[in-house]
Amino acid sequence: MIAVRNLVKEYGGKRVVDGVNFSVQPGEITAYLGPNGAGKSTTIKMIVGLLKPTAGQVLICDHDIASDPLSAKKCLGYVPENSAIYATLTPQEYLSLVADLHGMDLELASERIDRLLQGFDLGQVAARQISTLSRGQRQKVLLSGGLLPDPPVLILDEPLQGLDANSVSMLRKMLQQMASRGKTILLCSHILAVVEKLCDRVLLLHQGRLTANEPTQQLIKKSEDGTLESVFCELTRTEQIEQGTRDFLQALSRTVNPPQ
């Protein structure tokens, strides 16, 4: 499980994450949502040990990520949002590196790598440098890296970016299967339609604070049109958005001389 307690992150005196508290139980897929700049990625980075929190505590399978990072990280599979990967390695090499770092049994690692490469349709490009792959293929390599050690906790930051419809569907089924086998999954995504179908619970972050922590269906019921999107907009909208849209459209409709 993941337990986040009073998590705070400050940059130059400004709080970007302000006292966030939540927990994700085994067998649960939880969505972590919020508008751009809300502090989602910062929270995720603190949870996986990439960033040091200003205050607060993160427990992964009851191991404190700050005081016992190795035990915590052994329980963790993470897919970062920014395609951070060693691009001059091949997918095969990258996955072997991940297997070695997790101390996996060589035979088991080899079998899983083979299955993952085939499953994500990466078999043809397994020996090509990652830098030459498409964005979607890179994302599949990252996903494979996260899934390979079969950790009890999975944290996926925008895992669907660049994936085609088939891969999204495959990943969705895979995550549901994993959750049913007792994995703890935390998912960050802006694709609310997928979140609606996949996640049991939604955490909504706005300006560094949690504004919602409820089961997905319960949250949807609160909205006017029965969608997660309208709940999201309602809870995170600022008044300037509508005024800003009007102003921008007005500026577009003005006739201007072409640049010299």
């Binding site: 996986v48 190795l70 963790l76 951070a84």
Partner: peptide, 13 residues
């Protein structure tokens, strides 16, 4: 610094 994003979350000391 790029290593942070790529391997820092792995279980290596």
């Amino acid at each position: 610094p790029d290593d942070l994003d790529i391997i820092r979350h792995r279980p290596i000391s």
